[in-house]
Computed example of a mutant assay.
Amino acid sequence: MTFNDDAKYSGKGVRKSGRRTGLAVGGGGLGLVAIVLLSQLLGVDLSGLMGGGTDPSGQDETTALTNCLTGEDANTDVECRVGLTRDSLEDYWAEQAPAMGISYSSPIIQLFSGGVDTGCGAATSAVGPFYCPADQQIYLDTAFYDTLRTEFGATAGPLSQLYVVGHEWGHHVQNRAGTFASTDTSQAGPTSDAVRVEVQADCFAGAWLGSAAQTTDAEGTRLLEPITEAQIADALNAASAIGDDRIQEKTQGQVNPETWTHGSSEMRQRWFQAGYTNGAEACDTFAVADAEL
């Protein structure tokens, strides 16, 4: 169990796409997923989103999560879990972001299957979860959690699933803070702006989870149960599994730090823990020296 069974879902902020865009992704199956995820996994560099043409018969329709009502639903249904995760993130960041001097607004989480049209271009599920600054939406195909298990060997339990959403929400906070406009994410390397952006989003996810047990629904009911050490280990396992070094070792048989865009497993875990232990104020990854990153 992660959510309080009695917590009520607001019904806000999450849309489910009724469109399956017919994007041409070529051959390769899960191999293609792994290749694309090397550069796109949980990131903001969306240059690789453009696929083939869309299916003109696709229906560009979205619906709310009408079948999701309570925390009990979130504990058994992955889409409902995203819905209540959204409520917890919103409760935390609506207060935390202004306290950090950030002009805050809420992002939309768009659930899709197969492919989707976004403000950043047409995307397939192969790119993994991502945040699009152009339309300020988070895009997620929940089948990605299965990919975490099968392709990357992560446990991908409920808290690691929350971490994934929290990371993308962290990118929205960065966008509202002007971080994207003030950094150069076109360069790679272990101390690059691209890596600093990504590990800061990990830190922001950790900061939210450190306070998540205090977030409440509209009636003041606690949204999440207290987080256990085992659940934190699950989230750290996901952060480790998607470190640049782990992915490179798995797919290329060698590690090349100069091409990193998201940070090593150790970096991603460490910054997650920094946020979890010390809060969002500890997440200024741009202020630390290269040797401390």
Results as ranks from 00 to 15, higher is better:
residue 178 G to F: 08
residue 109 I to C: 03
residue 144 F to I: 12
residue 178 G to K: 11
residue 31 G to V: 00
residue 96 Q to M: 13
residue 115 G to Q: 00
residue 125 S to Y: 00
residue 266 E to K: 12
residue 258 E to I: 10
residue 16 K to W: 01
residue 114 G to E: 01
residue 251 T to M: 15
residue 165 V to L: 15
residue 211 S to N: 15
residue 153 G to P: 05
residue 198 E to C: 01
residue 276 Y to T: 03
residue 100 M to I: 06
residue 247 I to D: 00
residue 105 S to C: 01
residue 162 L to F: 09
residue 35 I to M: 12
residue 8 K to I: 12
residue 72 E to N: 07
residue 271 W to P: 00
residue 111 L to T: 07
residue 272 F to C: 12
residue 291 A to Y: 08
residue 6 D to L: 13
residue 8 K to M: 13
residue 254 Q to D: 12
residue 58 G to V: 12
residue 119 G to S: 06
residue 251 T to L: 15
residue 67 N to W: 03
residue 63 T to R: 15
residue 264 S to C: 08
residue 262 H to V: 07
residue 128 G to N: 06
residue 187 Q to F: 04
residue 162 L to K: 03
residue 167 H to C: 10
residue 245 D to Q: 06
residue 91 D to N: 14
residue 286 F to V: 11
residue 33 V to K: 05
residue 19 R to G: 07
residue 94 A to Q: 14
residue 118 T to M: 06
residue 220 G to Y: 07
residue 248 Q to Y: 09
residue 34 A to P: 02
residue 259 T to Q: 15
residue 179 T to Y: 09
residue 5 D to N: 12
residue 21 T to K: 04
residue 293 L to S: 11
residue 16 K to E: 06
residue 150 T to R: 15
residue 55 D to C: 04
residue 240 S to L: 03
residue 121 G to H: 06
residue 228 T to R: 02
residue 74 A to H: 04
residue 181 A to S: 14
residue 26 G to P: 04
residue 71 G to S: 09
residue 9 Y to I: 13
residue 67 N to T: 06
residue 50 M to V: 09
residue 67 N to E: 05
residue 193 D to W: 03
residue 176 R to M: 14
residue 83 G to V: 06
residue 154 A to M: 05
residue 88 S to I: 01
residue 105 S to N: 09
residue 30 L to E: 10
residue 113 S to H: 07
residue 14 V to E: 05
residue 108 I to N: 07
residue 241 A to F: 02
residue 165 V to I: 15
residue 63 T to H: 10
residue 188 A to P: 05
residue 288 V to I: 14
residue 20 R to W: 04
residue 27 G to V: 08
residue 39 S to T: 12
residue 281 E to W: 02
residue 192 S to W: 03
residue 17 S to T: 10
residue 217 D to I: 07
residue 98 P to M: 11
residue 79 E to P: 05
residue 85 T to H: 01
residue 169 W to C: 04
residue 156 A to L: 06
residue 272 F to I: 11
residue 276 Y to F: 14
residue 140 L to G: 03
residue 125 S to A: 14
residue 67 N to H: 12
residue 18 G to I: 00
residue 115 G to K: 04
residue 281 E to K: 14
residue 20 R to M: 10
residue 58 G to M: 08
residue 48 G to P: 02
residue 80 C to P: 01
residue 175 N to W: 00
residue 93 W to Q: 06
residue 64 A to K: 13
residue 110 Q to W: 06
